[in-house]
Amino acid sequence: MLVIENCRLTWPDFEADYTMSVETGALCAVIGPSGGGKTTLLHMIAGFETPESGTLTLNGRNLLPLEPAKRPAAIVFQDHNLFPHLTALQNAALGLRPSLSMGAEDRNLVSGMLGAVGLKGFEERKPGEMSGGQRQRVALARALVSGRPLILLDEPFSSLDPVLRRDMVQLVDRLRRERGVTVLMTIHTPEDVADIADQMAFVADGRVVATGTPASILDSALAPRIAAAVSDS
């Protein structure tokens, strides 16, 4: 289980204090207004932001002393963060071998992961030769091939059309079930995950205002704030 307790971060113009937990193997959708602290939450879990106080554990292991590269978490950014001069295979392989020094077994593993995300035969294509959805699939393959038990997705599908966005959410759901990973995904279209996510968290003003099943969040007194947040995104 991922457990966050009173993790406090402060800047001159923003303050955050997070408390929430996510069961192992769950898909947790994080929603809320722009600038409300959703990305900061993921960055803190990944190790890019360090809280002044509080605790952050995964299956009882304290993550706070660990630098980002040592944490059991992989993150997929909104802009996919692929290297334009590398092939799809090489970009995905960075999650397994940052040096890109791979033997046949490693190449087969990465190629198989590309196949798992629907990119069989795309190994030698470069990002400029792929669509936005295909590039995001490469980024997802890179996160999954790392073998880390916690996957953080920071609005990775916001630039995609509604049909493709829904397809990608369903792909994430299938892969996390097959591979037993825990997923936290920030998203500004809660309707895309309402029937898929195990958990939903509403984050605003640097706080986890509420967390529970998607139905309990979307049908709660927060509904007007959620609607306003979605329209502002």
Rank of each mutant, 00 (worst) to 15 (best):
V3Y: 02
I4Y: 03
R8W: 07
P12K: 14
S21Y: 01
A29W: 03
A29N: 03
A29D: 05
V30S: 02
V30R: 01
I31F: 05
I31S: 07
K38H: 03
K38N: 03
T39Q: 07
T39W: 06
T39S: 15
L41Q: 08
L42T: 08
M44D: 05
F48Q: 11
L58R: 06
L58S: 02
L64Y: 13
P68C: 10
R71Y: 04
R71A: 08
P72Q: 05
P72V: 04
I75F: 07
I75C: 07
F77W: 14
Q78R: 15
D79E: 14
N81F: 07
L82S: 14
T87D: 08
T87W: 07
Q90A: 14
A93Y: 05
P98Y: 05
P98M: 07
L100S: 05
G103N: 15
E105I: 10
E105V: 11
N108Q: 14
L109A: 13
G112N: 14
G115H: 12
V117C: 11
G118V: 02
E123D: 12
E124V: 01
G132Q: 11
Q134M: 13
Q136E: 10
A139S: 15
L140E: 11
A141S: 13
S146Q: 08
S146H: 05
S146R: 12
G147K: 12
G147L: 11
L150Q: 12
L150E: 10
L150I: 09
L152I: 09
D154C: 10
S159H: 13
L171C: 07
R176E: 08
E178G: 09
V181S: 08
V181Q: 14
V183T: 13
L184G: 10
M185Y: 12
I187F: 06
H188R: 12
T189P: 00
T189G: 01
E191L: 15
E191P: 03
A194P: 03
D195V: 03
I196P: 01
I196M: 04
A197N: 06
D198L: 02
Q199A: 01
F202K: 10
A204M: 01
A204E: 08
D205Q: 14
D205F: 04
D205Y: 02
V208L: 01
T211M: 14
T211K: 04
T213F: 04
A215C: 01
S216H: 01
A221N: 06
A223Q: 07
P224D: 10
P224A: 04
R225Y: 01
A227N: 02
A228C: 00
S231G: 01
D232N: 06
S233N: 15
